[in-house]
Design a protein around this nucleic acid. Structure first.
Lengths: 103, 103
DNA sequence: CGTTTCAATATGTGATTTTATATATATATG
DNA sequence: CATATATATATAAAATCACATATTGAAACG
């Protein structure tokens, strides 16, 4: 059942604790009651997409749509940034402003 | 504004058309009625996170949680894979099948 | 040209389920 | 006790589902 946001729930909680915030504090910033944060983190309720997006962004993260084939690469990129290895890579040195639209 | 999944909606539709699938076809694979696909694509309804995840995965994509600071890099990575520039990088070689239309 | 058929898409109604919200409370844990 | 977290109601709003139907667009035909 990896279609359940159970992973997301854990990552949300981890990100929150990483910042040393309480559920009430996160809830206040995302305009959500603490009980809701609790329900989402425990996986008891599956949030709407916009709700999750608010939460995620309050925690300094974002949800990005990527091709399945690139998921490993993206995960590696994120992991590298954690370990500090990203400094060796002039990744987006050139400006990259997201037009985000490829019609 | 941009917390609405309006961008997601457009990308969902684009990905669907890229594959030449009808809403009914996508709905069948994601176990959703065609009317829902329509509502989501037109932005009339905001899906739950798990629903959106099902849809996204049926379309060969995924939603990845990344730090906001890495979003530009991730977008660049995705863009490069589209334009074929990824060839310099022997990452995970498989190039996603979105070659656009075939007709 | 008009209209008929057909596929794809969008919209509508009603019922069911679930999130979202507010409030109160229980259970830790220090 | 005070704080943080989880759970329990109750209400309102919205998604989900199934069905029907309208709209659009294209192709075929008289």
């Amino acid at each position: 059942m990896d279609r359940l946001p159970e992973t997301i729930s854990r990552e949300l909680k981890a990100a929150r604790l990483r910042r040393g915030w309480s559920q009430a504090e996160v809830g206040k910033q995302a305009a959500l009651p603490q009980t809701h944060i609790s329900g989402i983190e425990t996986g008891r309720i599956v949030p709407r997409f916009d709700t999750l997006l608010d939460l995620v962004r309050v925690l300094g993260m974002d949800l990005v749509l990527v091709p399945q084939s690139l998921v490993p690469a993206v995960n590696a990129l994120v992991r590298d940034s954690h370990t500090g290895k990203a400094s060796e890579r002039p990744l987006y040195a050139a400006d990259d402003d997201d037009d985000g639209d490829a019609s």
